[in-house]
Write a protein that binds this DNA or RNA. Sequence first.
DNA 1: CACACGAAATCGTCGAACGATATTGACGGA
DNA 2: TCCGTCAATATCGTTCGACGATTTCGTGTG
Lengths: 246, 246
Amino acid sequence: MATTAKTARKSVPAGDVTEGKNAGDGALASAADRVSESILQGIRSGSFVPGQHLLEPDLTRRLGISRGSLREALKHLAAAGIVTLNRFRGAYISTLDRKSVLDLLDTLEPLARLGARLAAENCGTDAQRKRMQVAAANIDAATKERNRGLYLDRRRQFYDAMIDIGGNMELARAMPLSRTDLFRAQVETIQTERQRMLHASGYAKITKAIVENDPVAADKAVKKHFDGTRKTINELPPHAFPTLEI
Amino acid sequence: MATTAKTARKSVPAGDVTEGKNAGDGALASAADRVSESILQGIRSGSFVPGQHLLEPDLTRRLGISRGSLREALKHLAAAGIVTLNRFRGAYISTLDRKSVLDLLDTLEPLARLGARLAAENCGTDAQRKRMQVAAANIDAATKERNRGLYLDRRRQFYDAMIDIGGNMELARAMPLSRTDLFRAQVETIQTERQRMLHASGYAKITKAIVENDPVAADKAVKKHFDGTRKTINELPPHAFPTLEI
DNA sequence: CACACGAAATCGTCGAACGATATTGACGGA
DNA sequence: TCCGTCAATATCGTTCGACGATTTCGTGTG
């Protein structure tokens, strides 16, 4: 229906469709959406670091969009907790202290467990099983490559696959995955190799339970995964969590 | 000046930091936030019904804000699933079918249980206990009054109190409470008196467990509350869930 | 060296404009 | 009469320029 996209002039109002867009009503990508995704991608890849000041004139120039669209995107990201807006002082990439990270884990865990249970119940076709296994293998490969941006992308794809297969779209909307990307970006550079590997192995266990249609095991695997993450967070040195002055 | 009140463009840019966005209504928030809250309030009170078409020119006139701010708010509400944006066709108040409602309940339940557990663990002062009891009593009163708008407002205040006391602010961000308001608005007019009363009594049980610092009982009370809600949803006639054409 | 003052930078909001698309209604032909 | 085609209208998505408000910072003065 909305797949016309015959006109491809320059600077047209968002004439392209986004198929794999996460969390949404399957709408088209507006300029603001593209900006949001660009900033999120920048956080995952490391070109934006927590605490960084985002200047409107700079971003509008680099992204080639108007200030209105940029502000729309920043507003959206602020609502998601990715950036912090300070009145008349600008937008900053949010920083998470240890308590916020642990709170975030507490919040994300029950949702992830629900998602894993649903995926385990609904993983019926070979295509679905394949998708989960590929997603898990991709995470593993990115971990071994020590490519943080790639790892965060694929971790996101893993959750997307799980939620897709589970079939509960409300879950996709509620899961604070972008905010999790933020804290992953903060800690990924600091945790030890062993912690990194241990964490990555968790996805394989979750995947195994899902493709075997074992919701109880999937739930348990996610729980263990989060317990391990909490342990890692508690073991991190204080300097992993910048004190947010201001 | 007989044309419009354009001279009133005093551009009142709030006066405080906007990090606490659920700081109530008030004119302290940004223009877009005020519009969002106004639309949400309209949904709760019934002046906006699911499926209703939102015209930009009409809203800008009625709310006295610019089109840019309105669009910002609509974008925000669309991200939260409250309104649906159709390219070149406008914004509509979202409608939820039965599956979406059940999915939403599945998603909300573990978060609400977490919130109740945390509140039960952290409810230490008399002020906190008082706040929970007042919130529960207010819900009860609104239910007995058969005032839907008031009920939805106070239900929201109940959850806010619970989350506040629990002390996990990530939870506040993740809980799809506004979307729940949407389905409550859809359902509240149709369910039977018995269902309504039964539902309201659940808040009292949750409150009791919280003030008695019994996390296990609080978790259990929320679970029962949601089980009852699911039962109600499944008993509703099909016409409670509009087929979303367009 | 401390403090006041003004310029620069930045943000929040508004209004107008242009292009693009969906909807609608009129018109003509089979 | 019915149906397809085409133009007019309504509405949306985006951009640009402008103004007021506020913070920040450099500079001059005591």
